[in-house]
Amino acid sequence: MHDITRRSAMTLAGALAAGAASAQGPARLNVVAFAGASNLVLWAGQAQGIFARHGVEVALELTPNSRAMASDLYAGKFDLALTSVDNIVAYNEGQGEAQLPGPSDFAAFFGVDDGMLSVMAAADVPDLAGLRGKVVSVDAMTTGFAFVLREVLGQAGIADQVEWVAVGGGAQRLAALLEGKQAATLLNTPLDLAAEARGFRRLARGRDAVGAYQGIVAAARRGVIDQKRAALVGFTRGFRDSLAWLDANRAEAAAILTARANMPPPVAARAATALLDAERGIYRDLRIDEAGLRTVLRLRSKYAQPAKELGDITRYIDPSIRAAALG
């Protein structure tokens, strides 16, 4: 009973605080993200004034790689990040590649998708075995989705028979793939569809290899969650309502991708359909999939250095913002 009362009080407090913030004018949130699914929601919410209606002004910047994301989020350049939850785990466990000035206190407060990941390769690579002896790219060697690709290639028996290179975020990896600098990489939707439209081959889907997986989340430092709770509640509501608007306006969703992601209209239409798929696209309930997060911890326990056995998912999440926004 005590827990129910506490959650109800938190929800009411969040609602009152968000209302107060709205009355005083929008609260600015500096948001960093990678090229991917979540940006469609942000672009729509900005254009339609949805975040503003929830008392929030969203200022979005794209990051070149997970190292820059972690450093900038830690330093306070950004209030929140839309990033792989694996990045949150990695830096909280001291396994990230960027050297932060002190211990990380990142926490995910809602989920976006399962990563929507595919191994994309040059047209002359017939299958995963065809990558043997070739160059494959990741964002960073020990964070992001690198361990998903290691697992996929490990199941094919070739993880130690390829040359690994760190290139940066999805946009950078797509560009390098299109330029022929690598034979394959792991891309999320809609970047996988952009590659496919240029004749590149889909060799595997991440979800088929690893099962349940938590991909992108909204995350912030725990101190920021405490200090900017009302704004983060408004952001979460704005994200939910922007997604609902996209659901009801599929043609406009495709047009946004054409304009903002420079996608040809046929590719943008396919991307919008994939991103808004009720079963496999962006999570309507903004959940953090606990089974998927456990998969992230399992892969990190298997591959990361220094080696750690990870199992406690509560170390990396703060459910209070989502509870206040959607409760």
Rank of each mutant, 00 (worst) to 15 (best):
A9W: 14
A13L: 14
L16E: 07
A20Y: 12
S22E: 04
A23C: 02
A33T: 05
G36W: 00
S38E: 13
N39L: 08
A44I: 06
A47S: 08
Q48Y: 00
F51A: 11
R53F: 05
R53N: 05
A59W: 01
L62C: 06
N65I: 09
R67I: 12
A68G: 06
S71E: 14
F78R: 06
L80I: 15
V85S: 10
I88V: 15
V89F: 10
E93Q: 13
G96N: 07
G96L: 10
G102H: 05
F109S: 10
S118K: 10
S118M: 10
V119M: 04
A121R: 05
A121W: 08
A123W: 08
D124K: 06
L128I: 11
G133L: 04
K134R: 13
V135Q: 04
V136H: 02
S137V: 07
V138N: 03
L149N: 02
E151R: 03
E151F: 01
E151S: 01
G157P: 13
G157R: 11
Q161I: 08
V165M: 06
V165C: 05
G168T: 09
G169C: 07
Q172P: 09
R173C: 07
L177D: 09
Q182S: 15
Q182T: 15
Q182F: 14
A184F: 13
N188R: 09
N188A: 13
N188K: 07
T189N: 06
A195I: 01
F200D: 06
R202G: 01
R205K: 12
R205L: 11
G206E: 09
R207F: 11
D208A: 00
Y213T: 00
A220V: 04
R221V: 09
R222G: 13
V224E: 15
I225P: 15
Q227A: 15
Q227S: 13
A230M: 13
R237Y: 02
D247Q: 08
R250I: 09
A254V: 01
A255P: 00
I256F: 00
I256Y: 01
L257Y: 03
R260K: 04
P264E: 05
P266T: 01
P266D: 05
V267A: 12
A269T: 08
T273P: 04
E279S: 02
R280D: 01
Y283F: 14
R287L: 13
R287S: 15
E290Q: 09
A291D: 05
G292H: 09
L293F: 00
L293I: 03
R294W: 08
T295I: 07
V296L: 09
L297N: 11
L297H: 12
R298Y: 04
R298M: 06
Y303Q: 08
P306C: 09
A307K: 15
K308F: 04
E309F: 11
G311S: 14
I313C: 11
T314N: 14
D318T: 08
L326C: 15
